[in-house]
């Protein structure tokens, strides 16, 4: 007899969190409805923060299992990056998503230091980055360069008049960084 077995599913990301060094939200995105209310989301963020903020996740991404979720995380200056997946998720896939997010943010902030201030100043890019990384829990892209160039809408503005002042122009430097990183 075939015993009951969980339905096979594609790797799913439950949420991505970007918190500051006090555990406050900088940018978050929940891809599933397991946290239905604002309170439950905040409670989750708080619990994750208290369990992780003392660890040293700067050189290498760290990992833990809390409340039945696998959480991979990586810190830089005053920013804490988290990616959450279900209990049975392949840890290495989650960590690939984390790394892509982390690297893409670095690319998008160009030559600036990755810290809370610069992230908030470029919050539009960070939110777009989350949107290009995962769609409704399904991993959309894992190559940080590709994510960053899609956020910058690279190649989409060829037919634009030069006179227009746009944020895409503000991104010109981002593209330079990209080009450089590609040339390396």
């Amino acid at each position: 007899m075939v015993s009951a077995r969980k339905p096979v599913s594609a790797p799913l990301v439950k949420n991505i969190l970007l918190l500051d060094s006090e555990g406050k939200r900088v940018a978050v995105k929940y891809y599933c409805d397991e946290w239905a209310t604002q309170q439950s989301k905040l409670a989750f963020e708080k619990s994750v923060f208290t369990k992780t903020h003392r660890t040293n996740a700067r050189a290498e991404a760290e990992i833990g299992m809390f409340d039945g979720y696998i959480i991979v995380y990586k810190f830089v200056s005053d920013l804490l990056f988290y990616v959450t997946g279900g209990e049975d998720e392949n840890e290495l896939i989650l960590s690939t998503v984390l790394q892509a997010f982390f690297d893409a943010v670095g690319l998008l902030l160009r030559n600036n230091v990755v810290e809370k201030r610069t992230v908030l100043e470029n919050l539009d890019l960070i939110l777009l980055c989350l949107d290009e990384l995962v769609d409704g829990g399904i991993i959309l892209e894992t190559d940080a360069n590709v994510v960053a160039s899609r956020v910058a809408m690279r190649g989409a503005d060829a037919d634009l008049p030069l006179s227009e002042q746009t944020i895409s122009q503000a991104l010109a430097t981002a593209k330079e960084t990209l080009a450089r990183s590609l040339l390396k």
Partner: peptide
Amino acid sequence: KDVGLRRMVYL
């Protein structure tokens, strides 16, 4: 016609 703005509109 601004590309960056259009991207934000989608989001």
